[in-house]
Amino acid sequence: MNKLLKMVTLTAIAVAAIVVGYYVFFAGIEAALRWYFLATKFTASKVPNFAHNLRSGAEVTIKLTVISSITGLFLGLIAGISRLSKNPLFRWPAQFYVWVIRGTPLLVQILFAYNALPFLLNPIWKFLESLGVPPIQDVLTPYWAAFIALSVNVGAYNAEVIRAGIQAIAKGQWEAAMSLGMSPFQVMRYIIVPQAIKIVVPPLVNNVIALLKDSSLASVITLLELVHHGQRMISITFRPVEVYIAVAAIYLILTTVLTFFTDWLERELARRGAVA
């Protein structure tokens, strides 16, 4: 009971810290952008607007990255474990998924999700609309199309990482768990996955960092993320050098923060229960 209370308190503190940290961080970005644009002699009256736009673009980028990473993690888990299944009904679809996604450009996947998916889903959606679901154009906005494409994309790369991580766990762990009467699912859930996590965290985080940068491709479907906001600003100011430097710097800051976070996470995972 005491333990539970402690966990709830710690979680609440962590959530509060993340929320506060998020606002402080982006307020800091916006302040830095203002200073930078003033220092580089942009029209002073427009600077607050520019800084605000780039900041909101950066926020879209980070939010998209976070939700796509989480979804992609689950997709990767399912596909990665399915690829190891003895049952072809699980193994083949997972293999097909990884093969198609890793073998085609992300740009094409993003365009497909935004432009082609509405056509494909049309028959089903007609039926759903009759049940009161809003039309597909209102649901599959650039943001959610990008979310689908990025999640599915990173999921395929995660699947390969997770498969390798599971295969890295010694056979003796399976044997010990099975000799205690655990079902294959229980062995996965309680023994293999918790250990594999420690092995797969660094490469999975690499995938997240790649995803953060790749989310810029969503600018082609008019998503107002960081790059697209930057391009708009350039079309107004005709100053690509300063703007692209600002855009690149924000990406660099975001990836650096992510790297610090994952270094910490890695240490934390190693601390909790030494890896065998």
Binding site: E175, A177, M182, I191, R272, G273, V275
Partner: peptide
Amino acid sequence: GMVFQSFNLFPHMTVLENVSLAPRIV
């Protein structure tokens, strides 16, 4: 029950968790 040459304890669990896991979930 089986005891292995290389112990095969679950490294991510405490001793108590190692021993109590299977009775709990199986």
